[in-house]
Design a protein around this nucleic acid. Sequence first.
DNA 1: GACTTTTGTTCATATATCGCACAAAATAAA
DNA 2: TTTATTTTGTGCGATATATGAACAAAAGTC
Lengths: 251, 251
Amino acid sequence: MRETDFVGGFAKGLTVIEAFGEAKPRLTITDVSKETGLDRATARRCLLTLAELGYAAYDGKFFELTPKILRLGHAYLSATPLPRLVQPYLDQLSEKVGQSASVSVLDGVEIVYVARAAQKRVMSINLTPGSRLPAYCASMGRVLLAALPEAEARAIVEASDRKANTPYTKTEPEALMEEFARVRQNGFALIDQELEIGLRSIAVPLENARGRVVAALNIGAPAAHASAEDMVTRYLPAMREVQAALRPVLA
Amino acid sequence: MRETDFVGGFAKGLTVIEAFGEAKPRLTITDVSKETGLDRATARRCLLTLAELGYAAYDGKFFELTPKILRLGHAYLSATPLPRLVQPYLDQLSEKVGQSASVSVLDGVEIVYVARAAQKRVMSINLTPGSRLPAYCASMGRVLLAALPEAEARAIVEASDRKANTPYTKTEPEALMEEFARVRQNGFALIDQELEIGLRSIAVPLENARGRVVAALNIGAPAAHASAEDMVTRYLPAMREVQAALRPVLA
DNA sequence: GACTTTTGTTCATATATCGCACAAAATAAA
DNA sequence: TTTATTTTGTGCGATATATGAACAAAAGTC
């Protein structure tokens, strides 16, 4: 790609949108400038452009994003085959086992939920398509990382901010790499309260017809409902069925 | 705002992202150019920029968005107070009545779901935060339109592509305007299979402390579970409670 | 109230992008 | 295969944008 095949203004604008994350709904020009590293003048122009287009609101001091911004992500969720293909399977699976079921893919050091069938909520955070969790400590993340070449998986683990969410969280790169090997061997990943106390989850990879892992499927359950062993005996068989049914369908 | 406070390249890039909508996951440069009205060279530069940044994938022929694009919408959902504030109320409400409950806001001629607590799915489409429905034929849409000045509501109605989803769908602007008046008077909107056969829903406005309508709250139920009258007698009181509880909390 | 610091805006200019026109490649039709 | 037709890639002049410093206006300190 040539140098001139890159629209700098567009790229800068996108970083400005991403600056509005995690409990930062209202930002001043200076805030955005600091957050993105862009010049104040540039940040201002991007923000005013967003406001002009209706993606942001401006009260003379603070900017905040409007719901119109959701059109951008929605373009992906409504257009991409994966979420639409897996949804009916998720609904059925979730119904059958009486627990929440989800499908996610990898984006950098995080997993991104692309489809979900929720039962009564058990986690402290509310997961919906578009939600993100750190890959290293999520069952689907383990499955997706285990499917990568070792070097890549290690690079992601090392780039992760590996904090111990609970006393059970594995944070050591070596321990995680060993865990990935087990996951590869078993064909599933089991997380026992590593992300949140009282929550267990089990995940399997979803492969396409050519055998490439394109996503992960999981079931999460309150620890009170199912022991670690229960997760495997009660839920894994149904998940295997979905896995097999989806294999020929996925690109 | 001065002319020069607008970054054209950014605005064009955003329209390129939006071109990937509704069953159009894979687009060529020419497709995007036609869809957006941008010059091919410009569309190409925007697409290559997206690919370079990891927001899109390019196989030499087709472009498709990657899950990274969800970061943009997620910036809104995770940062904006409204979704986070209402979620626990939605969970409780949904649990209490045994039906799905949602909160949405208006964006142009559509409503956008910003939070949802789903029970077993009854609609043919899968609704999640970010999902959109035409305002004129959705219960929350009726409530939000009824809260606007008449002229604005009429403008939106007339700009809508008012197709009759079912035999019950109201599509005449006059009929809709009268309906809005009723909604204003009653303080709620009831949709009886206008969007989809077998689905009823009821919505109330959510006002902030200053009395401004900032969103709408609804409950949807299969027609088999609840008559139109049931919707009002069984669900409305609980919705009123949530409405009252949220009033002092919302900005 | 005077001082310091932070923030927002403007401007000139160096630089990058836009969109046209043309060339090259791919695809479809003959 | 050859000929149309469509799609994609590229060079270039005109035009729009980014930059960083300078200024103005608030906001915060003493």
